Computed example of a mutant assay.
Amino acid sequence: MSEQLTLFDKVRPKPEGLRYAAEFVTPAIEQELILGIQTLPLQPFHFGEFEGKRRVASFGFRYDYDLRQLRRAEPIPRWLAEIVANVETFGGPAIRIQQVLCTEYGVGVGIGWHRDKPHFDEIFGLSLRSARKFRFRKRAGKTWDRFTIDAEPRSLYMMTGASRQIWEHSISAVEAPRYSVTFRTMTNGPDPMTPA
């Protein structure tokens, strides 16, 4: 694994706490992960009364948008154990992944501007199969500061600090089918199962 920051937008400063590693996994491991995701009982992503165009499967915990709280989910599968350990190593000795989200994106599917739920702390994302634009923005008076990563297949990003808490992020519509695995730690605050 080699950390490469050369793909960051050079014109604007990158969000504090954002890290990027190209070629975090090998092509062979990428294929194994894609095959694993394809065997999951993926379901359309639901948030309230709306249904996203991407399909997902959550492990450890899942966020229930109707109840506005975390719910227990199936344990993280064994076939993800090695990659979870590698992500924890990348993040540092205090990192403990407790939630994993596997996602399938069809052509033209993206994600709008948001921050992950406050129940989660550090966020890691592994891109598989095709590249995508991973965009950041934060309010700067009446305008926005913006930053973009060209997230290549097999790359990993980490969001902590300001990049996680202050900046919003989104994913532009993908031009080819894509998969991702998101890894999250939990906050050290109140019980994460308490309603938000």
Rank of each mutant, 00 (worst) to 15 (best):
A151W: 07
H46N: 10
K142V: 09
M193L: 15
G108H: 13
E152K: 11
A85V: 12
D191P: 09
W167G: 01
F47R: 11
R12N: 13
Q38E: 15
H114I: 07
I123A: 00
L128K: 01
H114W: 10
I97D: 01
P75Q: 05
R178Y: 06
F120Y: 15
F61E: 06
Q99P: 03
W167P: 00
Q99K: 05
A196H: 11
E175G: 11
E88G: 00
G60W: 11
V11F: 10
I76K: 02
P77S: 01
E104M: 11
L67I: 05
R78L: 09
T148Q: 08
G36H: 07
F183T: 04
R135H: 14
R129N: 13
I166F: 09
R115V: 06
G36T: 06
P93I: 09
A85N: 13
E82G: 10
R184S: 01
T26N: 05
A94P: 08
D64Y: 13
F124E: 05
Q38Y: 03
R115E: 06
I149E: 01
F147Q: 01
M1S: 12
V25P: 04
E30H: 05
E51F: 07
A176K: 15
L33T: 03
W144S: 07
I97Q: 00
P77K: 03
D150E: 14
A21Q: 08
A81Y: 09
E122S: 08
S170E: 11
Q43S: 10
V84S: 00
Q38D: 15
I111C: 00
E49H: 11
P195A: 06
F45P: 00
A173L: 08
Y157A: 02
T185K: 02
T160F: 04
A21T: 11
G106W: 07
I166P: 00
L35E: 15
T26L: 06
Q43W: 03
R132Y: 07
A131E: 13
T194D: 11
N188F: 08
Q165K: 14
E152F: 08
W79S: 08
P75L: 01
G92D: 03
A140N: 15
E30A: 11
E104Q: 15
T182M: 12
E82Q: 14
F61C: 03
M159S: 04
F47H: 15
T185A: 02
I95F: 08
S163C: 03
I34P: 00
L40G: 01
E51S: 14
I34Y: 02
L67H: 12
R154H: 09
G60E: 05
T185I: 02
K117L: 13
D191L: 07
L5T: 14
A140W: 11
I149Q: 00
Y157R: 01
F147E: 01
R71D: 09
I166G: 02
E168P: 03
I76R: 02
Y105E: 04
